[in-house]
């Protein structure tokens, strides 16, 4: 029997709306990026993925259900999905085995998802709320979790959180800094970004292939996926070494990774990060933001310039 993959936890956030803006790079139909629209309306996105390579460019973000009907302004081809939830497992330790196991599991058990993105600790999926219990149940049974673990649900702890906020007034989502504080901006160079396009039926096999690529020398640095109807998966994988799985497109890339306190609770952060790169005409291949972490994949050679540009907006105390 295959040994279970050990993780420490599952995190769950319910009652979100998924907004996806596709074909964001069409020159004949320029649109204001979703993250800018939401930032101007002071609406927070707890999950975001942006892609500009492969067969389809898109930005997709999750906003709380209370913002239903917002934003007032809608640019581009904006697609809404109500009633989604966000499920994360952590930590993945950048292991191809963990990622491959997860994809294989979802493929074998026909668990569909809308989006996936990684942070430096988490692998996060946006799934329809109707599938939420099944996904949590399957993850709980198939991963090796601490005995006392219960999936952490933000909503269920709301009362407790409010109590703590009153008793120990912390800073959650209550401040806007001129320069946003981070824990440091890390740059990884010499990486390979691969784009795979395949049907959902192949997900289990693809996951197994990824698992078999595990070795001490290779790990993944960033990954994201988008499941397009009908069950066509666009999957992106940033690795140190090229994998032996034929990709539809590959390119040399660099990764900037940073995070800060309560990034996931505060609006405008991703907008400020991407705007400062855009102002300096620095192209972005992929962006993923989940929890308190932001990952930006850039063409090889652009990382240092991007890091300098980000330092205009972010600071390391």
């Amino acid at each position: 029997m295959t040994e279970q993959v050990k993780i420490n936890g599952i995190r769950l956030n319910k009652n979100y709306i998924q907004m996806t803006q596709v074909d964001i790079d069409r020159r004949d139909q320029p649109c204001v990026p979703l993250y800018q629209i939401l930032a101007s309306d002071k609406i927070n996105m707890v999950f975001i993925v942006l892609n500009t390579i492969g067969d389809r460019s898109y930005i997709s973000g999750s906003i709380a259900s209370k913002h239903l009907g917002q934003p007032a302004r809608q640019d581009g081809n904006l697609d809404y999905h109500r009633n989604v939830c966000i499920i994360s497992i952590y930590p993945h330790h950048y292991r191809l085995r963990s990622l491959g196991f997860l994809l294989s599991l979802m493929g074998r058990l026909k668990l569909s998802f809308r989006h996936m993105v990684s942070s430096n600790a988490m692998l996060t999926f946006v799934v329809d709320q109707t599938d939420c219990d099944a996904v949590i149940d399957i993850f709980s049974k198939n991963f090796d979790l601490p005995e006392s673990h219960v999936p952490f649900e933000q909503e269920q702890n709301e009362e407790f959180t409010q109590f703590l906020k009153r008793k120990y007034p912390e800073t959650r989502a209550t401040y806007v800094e001129k320069k946003i504080k981070t824990y440091g901006i890390a740059l990884e160079s010499g990486l390979n970004l691969s784009f795979y396009l395949f049907s959902f039926d192949r997900l289990a096999t693809f996951g197994q292939e990824i698992q078999s690529m595990e070795d001490k020398e290779n790990k993944f640095f960033h990954t994201s996926a988008y499941m397009e109807t009908p069950a066509q998966i666009h999957l992106f994988l940033l690795t140190g070494k090229k994998l032996g799985i034929p990709a539809r497109q590959t390119c040399a890339a660099e990764l900037i990774n940073f995070h800060g306190p309560h990034f996931g609770d505060r609006h405008s952060i991703i907008s400020r990060a991407l705007n400062c790169l855009s102002e300096k005409s620095i192209p972005v291949l992929q962006t993923g933001c989940t929890g308190a972490s932001i990952g930006i994949v850039l063409p090889q050679g652009k990382g240092e310039e991007a890091k300098q540009a980000l330092m205009d907006v972010f600071e390391i105390p």
Binding site: S88, S119, H259, A292
Partner: peptide, 9 residues
Amino acid sequence: DDDPDLVEA
């Protein structure tokens, strides 16, 4: 920490 990214860093 309940922020897995911070724990990892």
